[in-house]
Design a protein around this nucleic acid. Structure first.
Lengths: 144, 144
DNA sequence: TATGGATGTATCAAAGAAGATTACAACGAT
DNA sequence: ATCGTTGTAATCTTCTTTGATACATCCATA
């Protein structure tokens, strides 16, 4: 099973907001056209990014902006903002292992810390990547 | 979005097969009772684990066994055996970014290597965990 | 060699998640 | 007051996972 496209869309959105901030009013419609999804999908994600303090969205006049310095936004921040469900637990566990079986009774004790370690390895890698690095690469490619 | 329970079920299955190998005929029915899912789910996973060379399954007489030494089976092997879809790519990308937009045109060039790095971090952590370590912990808890 | 317990696998149903789409109230700059 | 935009609800479609039933195939053994 894959991690949903909300994460990659959110990063795409942030790059758009930053890249076009001086030349366009970056509305949900504008971003939706770049990502190629429905504007409502963008607005929903904008709300999640806003709740996480990553972007600001202007009602009425319209348009989105980045809310804090890009080097203080990590990929993990973005991931948690838009992808965090199930209490942030990455691995779905089968719900009702048989408590009458020694294995069923102990499977969580055996596995939970290891699963957490794996998830943490992934999260630490994400935490090490900031949006400012990403925008540096983006700017090289975009030739705006 | 979470990684499906197939992975944790598969690990549970392997622990069962190993833990009960001397005292029970470990059939799909038997495992299903410990995991608490439908036996067909177990059989489907057994087939995937078998294709990966992790278990052997006896037709006719019934029962499953581990196919190679536990210290040569890593959590990554199990994960890839049962969870690998979409060419093993963890992050789902939005399908059709707008090629007329500089950001849409370059989003893969900007993101792909970073996403791969994150996925690799997770996979390396899984590769470092063997089923023999897990069985050591399990045996301590199971008191069989 | 017939039998009975298992596996291998197809098929369909049920449930949940993601994303698309429509609709519209609320907002705020002008 | 208007107009473009946001915020959000509601509905629909599609996809994936898991559950469940059914049954042909297999193989040890009685």
């Amino acid at each position: 099973m894959q991690i949903s496209s909300r994460f990659t869309i959110a990063v795409h959105m942030i790059i758009c907001i930053e890249a076009f901030k001086d030349t366009h009013k970056v509305t949900s419609e504008f971003i939706a056209s770049s990502v190629n999804v429905n504007p409502v999908v963008i607005r929903r994600l904008l709300q999640q990014l806003k709740k996480a303090g990553i972007v600001e969205v202007k009602r009425g006049s319209g348009g989105a902006d980045i809310a804090r310095p890009l080097d203080e936004i990590t990929l993990l921040d973005v991931y948690n903002a838009v992808e965090s469900v199930d209490n942030g637990v990455l691995f779905h566990f089968h719900e009702n292992p048989n408590q009458l079986c020694p294995v069923g009774r102990n499977i969580h004790a055996i596995m939970d810390s290891r699963l957490q370690e794996i998830q943490t390895a992934m999260e630490e890698k994400m935490r090490a990547m900031t949006l400012s690095e990403i925008m540096e690469d983006a700017n090289r490619l975009l030739e705006l």
